[in-house]
Nucleic acid binder design. Structure first.
Ligand SMILES: [Zn+2]
Ligand SMILES: [Zn+2]
Ligand SMILES: [Zn+2]
Ligand SMILES: [Zn+2]
Lengths: 134, 134
DNA sequence: CTTGACTCTGAAGTTAGCTTTAGGGTTTAT
DNA sequence: ATAAACCCTAAAGCTAACTTCAGAGTCAAG
């Protein structure tokens, strides 16, 4: 199949598919006489794999590593795959905690403000951001 | 004070301070005869403000807007400031939810894998990422 | 046979928030 | 007086993951 169909099937943009090839995520496919990329359905599986991996937080680099495992599964172990998953889970947790801290801080600051139509001259939010003690 | 001291006091890098000036977050200060930037302590307050705002998730652009309010507080209202805060709180919540969804999905996938030293030929993580039904 | 949809390449542009580089003056301490 | 530490500029580079552009060739339908 040509790149347009592959893109449609995988839900990616055509340019993204070419980009993934350039970045070494998928192999360069054979070409038609006119120079068009000619993909097998295997590539669709790879793109779906990438899309799923991205959807749970893996970067393209990490997707490339995971995909390398995927294409030669017998040379790798469950331990290795699960290790990468758990590493990513830890990263996600850390990111959530960082956001949580920001949210808590901002919520406390925000809640202290009256939110009224009066002038912000004495707004506690601005004071807090400046570093003034409450 | 010169830029080095200002940077030390604010906890920012010297280049960052110049960058903020270029981006319009802080005004260009007067210069010494030798051409050195000569800051008043007011700028330190502004930089602290920016650092705090960034720490709770505001982008530099948003910091610039907040700072504009900060420097002319009497022309703005608490409602306006609190509105921006609450908008940001909502964004933070959405980001946390997105991470939460990723985490839940990946955790479910990861938990199903034995994690053993056996070959990954039948690894359920890889199967799930490929899109196979379990 | 022509029109519109599709494909190709390589390079450059995008966003955010800096950091680095290159090359050159100034201040301060010893 | 000299060396370390500081300051200046403009421009380029960095990361991530694409997207856009310019210009040109190919395919399918009517
Ligand atoms: Zn108020
Ligand atoms: Zn207020
Ligand atoms: Zn297993
Ligand atoms: Zn497994």
């Amino acid at each position: 199949m040509r790149i347009g169909e592959l893109a449609r099937e995988s839900g990616l943009a055509v340019e993204t598919v070419r980009y993934y090839e350039k970045e070494g995520l998928i192999a360069a496919p054979p070409r038609s006489p006119a120079g068009y990329r000619d993909y097998s359905s295997l590539t669709l599986h790879y793109l779906n794999f990438i899309r799923s991996a991205k959807a749970v937080g893996f970067s393209l680099k990490e997707c490339r590593d995971l995909l390398a495992i995927f294409v030669s599964r017998d040379a790798h172990t469950c331990a290795e795959v699960k290790g990468l998953s758990e590493e990513k889970l830890t990263q996600l947790e850390q990111q959530m905690e960082a956001l949580q801290r920001m949210h808590q801080t901002l919520k406390a600051i925000s809640d202290a403000c009256c939110g009224g139509d009066e002038s912000a001259v004495n707004c506690s939010i601005l004071d807090q951001l400046e570093g003034k003690k409450p």
